[in-house]
Amino acid sequence: MTTSQNETATETHGATLTDAAASKAKALLEQEGRDDLALRIAVQPGGCAGLRYQLFFDDRVLDGDIVVEFSGVKLAVDRMSAPYIQGASIDFVDTIEKQGFTIDNPNATGSCACGDSFN
């Protein structure tokens, strides 16, 4: 894990990308021919449990962003979302039952039945 040049080595958002997630994100970026995007995780109000994750590629750099690099993939988090994802692990699963990015967040005290939001 390396930090971007714009932050101190001790500044971190506390989230991690597993090797599988970083590999999939890197493959998606290569497929699009883009190397200027960061994978952004944000927490927004919404969903039946109160908060909802947003995980997407972003070319913007927001004021106060915390960016940490995992295996060549930049993971960006805005300062408002950082406390909610402290200690969270972003993984990529590819099984018969499920395919996609998953977020294991120790801060989530509950979630809705559909798994789309948390509190």
Score class of each variant (00 low, 15 high):
Q31H: 10
Q31Y: 08
Q31T: 13
Q31S: 12
Q31E: 12
Q31F: 10
E32K: 01
G33L: 11
R34I: 03
D35M: 06
D35I: 00
D36P: 08
L37R: 07
L37P: 04
A38T: 08
L39I: 04
L39V: 04
R40D: 03
R40F: 03
I41L: 12
I41E: 03
A42Q: 15
A42S: 15
A42F: 01
Q44I: 15
Q44C: 05
Q44K: 14
Q44W: 06
P45I: 05
G46Q: 02
G47V: 04
G47W: 02
G47E: 00
G47I: 01
C48F: 12
C48P: 09
C48I: 07
G50H: 09
L51Q: 10
R52N: 06
R52W: 01
Y53S: 03
Y53E: 02
Q54W: 05
Q54A: 13
Q54N: 14
Q54G: 15
Q54D: 11
F56V: 13
D58F: 02
D58M: 04
D59Q: 13
D59N: 13
D59V: 06
R60N: 14
R60Q: 15
R60M: 11
V61R: 15
V61W: 11
V61A: 14
D65L: 10
D65S: 08
D65T: 09
I66G: 01
I66C: 04
I66K: 06
I66T: 13
I66R: 07
V67Q: 02
V68H: 07
V68C: 05
E69H: 10
E69G: 05
F70E: 05
F70W: 12
F70L: 05
F70T: 08
S71V: 00
S71G: 06
G72D: 10
V73I: 12
K74Q: 15
K74E: 14
K74N: 14
L75Q: 02
L75C: 03
